Simulated scan of single mutants.
Amino acid sequence: MRIKEVIVVEGRDDTARIRQAVDADTIETNGSAIDEEVLKRISHAQQKRGVIIFTDPDSPGERIRHIVTEHVPGCKHAFLPKESARAKRNKGIGVEHSSLEDIRQALSSVYELTESTYNSITKEELLSYGLIGGAMANQRREKLGLALKIGKTNGKQLLKRLNMFQITQKQLEEAMDQIVQEEENEK
């Protein structure tokens, strides 16, 4: 599988793992203290080939994603579920610990942020689905993030991501129907 876009990752272990999974070029941020030179390289890559941000599913990874998105508009995003990025023998979480198939799956399901004011989904809908303000909201958001491949979020981030990635009400409804069905089957 050849990836046209340049993939932004956190470090060289991520690069090595991605190159085992797919044929791709990467730019390493070397952690969340991204300097101007790295941001210039990412911006140049975005202009020439496009960029996919593929960071670890943890707080530093989200911080890097936010910094790059803020400085380089138009990047695509790939998300990896936390469970798929967990190291087997230690407490580490990262792209470098993922299976090759999980990496391929994440890179085949990229999202592009939009500049539009697309606001199809409302806070009230999130409340009605129990995604915010309820006892099981955190678990439901995590399941929804997996189902829609948009990563784990808090309530405020969820609303923003659903609308930025232009998730439709129908897509949300179908995913939530499946989540509710799974919850009922677990009882």
Rank of each mutant, 00 (worst) to 15 (best):
G31L: 14
I53K: 12
G130P: 04
I7P: 05
E101I: 06
S109D: 07
H66F: 05
H44R: 06
V180N: 04
M1C: 04
L158V: 08
V38K: 15
K48A: 13
E112N: 10
I18W: 00
A137Q: 04
T55P: 00
R140Q: 06
T114L: 04
A87H: 15
V68D: 06
M1N: 12
S99Q: 03
G134W: 07
P57G: 09
Q178N: 07
A135G: 15
L113M: 09
E142T: 14
R63T: 14
L107Q: 05
D58M: 03
Q178D: 09
A33C: 03
A21L: 13
G145M: 08
E182M: 09
E124D: 07
M1V: 05
D58A: 13
P73T: 01
I18F: 01
K149N: 06
F79P: 07
G50V: 00
R19G: 09
A137S: 13
E36S: 12
T69G: 09
K82L: 09
I34A: 12
A33E: 04
D177L: 15
V68I: 05
H44T: 08
Q46L: 11
A78L: 00
Q20D: 15
E10C: 10
Q139I: 05
E5N: 06
A16T: 06
T122C: 12
K76D: 09
T153C: 05
N138K: 14
G133Q: 07
L162Y: 00
G155L: 08
Q139P: 01
S32Q: 11
E142I: 14
D56V: 14
G155D: 09
E37C: 05
G145V: 03
R2K: 06
E101D: 03
D56M: 10
K4R: 14
Q46N: 14
I27G: 02
A16E: 10
A147F: 14
Q105V: 11
L158Y: 05
S116H: 12
V95S: 02
R65E: 09
S116C: 12
A21H: 08
E182C: 11
V95Q: 02
V72P: 00
G11K: 13
K187Y: 05
I52G: 00
S32M: 10
I53P: 14
G61K: 07
D102R: 04
G130D: 01
R140I: 07
V72D: 02
H44Y: 06
M164A: 02
H44N: 06
D102S: 11
H97R: 01
R49H: 10
E184D: 04
E5H: 02
A33P: 01
A78E: 02
I150C: 06
S120G: 07
R141P: 05
I52K: 00
T69D: 07
A87M: 15
D177G: 11
V22S: 03
G155T: 13
P73M: 01
Q47T: 04
C75T: 10
I93V: 15
K187F: 09
I93K: 07
G151F: 11
E125S: 11
M1L: 10
E112R: 12
T69L: 08
L146S: 13
K40Q: 10
T29V: 14
G92W: 08
A135K: 15
D102C: 02
K152S: 11
K187N: 06
I52H: 00
V38D: 13
P57T: 11
E115A: 10
G94V: 13
G74N: 15
I103C: 01
T26M: 04
L107V: 03
G31F: 03
D23E: 01
T29R: 13
S59T: 06
N90I: 09
E142N: 15
T153N: 05
Q47W: 01
